[in-house]
Amino acid sequence: MNPGKIFKDGLLTNNPVLVQLLGMCSTMAITTSLFNGLGMGLSVTVILCCCNVCISLLRKLIPSTVRIAVYVVIIAGFVTIVDLLLQAFLPALSESLGVFIPLIVVNCIIIGRAEAFASRHSVGEALLDGLAQGLGYTAVLVIMSVVRELLGSGSFGAGVFNGGKGWQLFPAGYACSYLTLPFGGFMTLGCLIALVQFLRSKKGEAEK
């Protein structure tokens, strides 16, 4: 499989969130600011790469009857490592993502890639796939969190840019604060997926 196709799959045509519709919980829960979205996305990318490599290495050794259990143990191991690293080096991020870091264990994207890709491909391809899918996930998180942070609290990149302060583009009093609440998570993701479906149907029409 050529790397270009793997990346195109992960970022666009087979995007884990927008097309495969996996990993919804964290996508909606933590995308209240770019800081959270970027942190979560990169954490998942790292874990996804590690798990994919590991599972691809072991794919000939894992008996197929207990494979899911083995995957879960491997994933949980890497999640624990990342969780502890974040607690040690990025306590602010760890604090604000809270329970959603350990919950990466049950993020369907990771187990889905293990089952659908890593267990059938070579190590190099599995690593690339992990990277592509992880970046695809991160891209969605970034889009969601930029939209929600901008419209929901009137700021951009708080905690990331401008020495951690970000930019307040308009007063928070004029922002639609509900967008940072669960209501906003559902609405933003709903509209984003609708947009993707719209573009795909347009493209489908054009190809006809």
Binding site: Y178, F183, F186, M187, L189, G190, C191, Q197, S201
Partner: peptide, 22 residues
């Protein structure tokens, strides 16, 4: 509408229910 069929409208519906639950 076609592009909202399936998941998007389900998410919007869930969002409206979340609004009521607020």
């Amino acid at each position: 509408p076609e592009c909202f069929e399936g998941f998007p409208i389900a998410l919007i519906t869930a969002g409206l229910i979340a609004l009521a639950f607020m």
